[in-house]
Design a binder for these strands. Structure first.
Lengths: 210, 210
DNA sequence: TGATAAAGTAAGTAATTACTAACATTCAGA
DNA sequence: TCTGAATGTTAGTAATTACTTACTTTATCA
């Protein structure tokens, strides 16, 4: 093993503690900002929740705002619907939409903290809010519109604007999630969510079929 | 004119200036809290925007929180969809839904500040957020579900859960409004909104008809 | 003009917050 | 054990915020 190689390994080992601390700060920041808002979540509380001294927070991030930016950067990316398309194309139309709805709601749930931040911080950080939105919904929406277009080209769906159709479809579930999860804060039973999925999908399927 | 009568008139005249000041404070509070959030909107800024001294704000409201509560109380109530039902019942199903969608989006627009507050303050004031939601959407949702039930009973609509149907329908437009207006902050052209209305309504009509 | 309600100016209080400085301690690896 | 990175404790700074006090001015009406 070369000397340069050993130095690299040494650095990596030394950096692990700092990396774990940084991760804890990002997690704690996400949780508290999502539950109290950016202004309501103090650096003192975030540090406490992360189990570190407040000064350590400022050793890792030059400011509260930079912590916030890193939180958004770290948690926004999500696996793409695109990767699911091969599987979806094997299903009949109704089953495909059931799967898409289920996956979409699942993704929203996984990232409920970020969705909450998206809603609460639109006045303070409009640009970041747009980023969150586009990272989440923008790609799904485009992929879905493209899927509708394909099905229209093969005569399975009637003629409607695929982009507006995608917007309507995702909007039903996005609204369902937002109202249930963020506004009313009711953890719905799986059976309620399942019913919403089938009812909404059935309306959409019948409304879009050729 | 009796002495008691004259005293009442005198009081009314004297109170008019205070009433106007109070109204200006409520208006300014609504605007600033909706654009900066509750914590981000300072009493100093609100008073300034209302054109009064900060002390005057505290003469009218015992605290910032009480001002906020009065803002919610003052602006939440809206004319009911119920009052439109006679007119809606005279229309055929598609036209009725077009009208409902249009009115619903119009109402959301009229109260965009309050909807924005509903989204941004859910962590600080969950109970008030629920109030806003129920005052806005709750009544519309119930009236619409009832309308669907009636149409099912007379065989015009197929068998689906009317409450979930109402949720899906309103959800499409609620989501459309939220994303356009609050997240992306794009003032859409009337033609874009009109297209969304017709596309969404058509999907729903075809998906719910018998 | 006098009386009173409503509002203004100026100054201040107490608490909080993001952030910093100085010194000390802990942890990990050789 | 030594070294250096990472972190902790203590204390503090400067600014901000909701709210208050004291005195003054303005507006309205009879």
């Amino acid at each position: 093993m070369s000397r340069a190689g050993r130095d690299l390994l040494l650095k990596a080992a030394r950096g692990e503690r700092a990396g774990a601390t940084r991760k804890r700060l990002l997690d704690a920041g996400l949780k508290l900002i999502s539950s109290k808002g950016y202004l309501g979540a103090t650096t003192k509380d975030i540090a406490k929740k992360a189990g570190v001294a407040e000064l350590t927070l400022f050793r890792h991030f030059s400011s509260k705002e930079q912590l916030f930016q890193e939180i958004i950067n770290s948690y926004t990316f999500l696996p793409a619907l695109k990767g699911l398309m091969p599987e979806i194309k094997e299903l009949d139309y109704r089953d495909a939409l059931l799967l898409i709805a289920e996956k979409f709601l699942g993704r929203l749930s996984e990232r409920r903290d970020l969705i909450r931040i998206m809603h609460s911080e639109m006045h303070l950080y409009p640009a970041r809010v747009k980023d969150i939105y586009h990272n989440f919904v923008g790609e799904v929406y485009k992929t879905l519109a493209s899927y509708f277009k394909d099905l229209q080209d093969s005569g399975i769906l009637r003629d409607f604007d695929p982009e507006y159709g995608a917007r309507a479809f995702l909007g039903m579930f996005f609204s369902y999630f937002t109202v249930r999860e963020l506004v009313l804060k009711e953890r719905s039973k799986p059976s309620d969510e399942q019913k919403a999925i089938t009812e909404f999908v059935d309306i959409f399927v019948k409304g879009s079929a050729a």
